[in-house]
Design a protein around this nucleic acid. Structure first.
Lengths: 120, 120
DNA sequence: TCCATAGTTTTATAATTATGGAAATATAAA
DNA sequence: TTTATATTTCCATAATTATAAAACTATGGA
């Protein structure tokens, strides 16, 4: 992950509504949730939700797949892990005694999403 | 950490210059670095650096102490850990098999900073 | 084909944020 | 006490971002 991607991801998360959406999806798991259900759970107008999902998607933090009429969004666990790793990179000049940095989240079971789905 | 604090911390990090500053301090370790040296390392005007340090400070991500004429800034490792934990909270509905979330960074050796120094 | 459902794109307005110069403040050395 | 250093606060300008209504697109069922 480079700086530009990290800033994009952090900016995507640095907003009340988007943080709610992202955490809901993180908690939901790799199977994801349809946009309409997210809107219902968080009580958001469709247009506002769409704006924020798009933002998260461009930042690489969520992906989606179509299933019949529904678009099912899911957290991109891999991207999230990369972000956490980026923040703590080379922590304390490698002096693990004062700083045993670690930052991981889901697994490679991360999800059904292909890279193109994650980013497009 | 509540949502408000998390958004503040993420917003503080979601900016090129501030992300550079924060990572520099994370890599420097708990002993920190004087503002002037940060400015030199990142080639920033003093006024711009001060603006961004202030932002990071209000978000609780850095603290400082005075040492003679210099203000020495250091990363607030504890706050950072809380942020990472918040993002991954209740990951995948507790189904650790698909999602063994963990997010930790430095230790309680985090630094010389008191809570009031971190936040004020 | 026509209608309903699920979401997105467009657009305008309102609000927030970044940058850097000039002036101010705090500390220390001469 | 004068002067230099280290850093901040104030300010104006420029740029970015959020919100939600209206119009649009895609899918599936009658």
């Amino acid at each position: 992950m480079d700086k530009h991607e990290a800033v994009a991801a952090l900016a995507a998360l640095a907003q009340d509504t988007r943080l709610d959406i992202f955490r809901l999806l993180i908690q939901t798991g790799p199977e994801g949730m349809p946009a309409g259900q997210i809107a219902e759970r968080l009580d958001l107008p469709a247009t506002t939700l769409s704006f924020h999902l798009n933002h998260l998607r461009h930042a690489g933090l969520v992906g989606f797949r179509r299933e019949s009429r529904m678009l099912i969004y899911a957290a991109a666990y891999g991207a999230m892990n990369e972000l956490l790793a980026y923040l703590t990179e080379n922590c304390c000049r490698g002096d693990a005694s004062g700083c045993d940095a670690r930052a991981r989240v889901p697994a490679s079971s991360s999800s059904f999403l292909t890279t193109s789905q994650r980013r497009s």
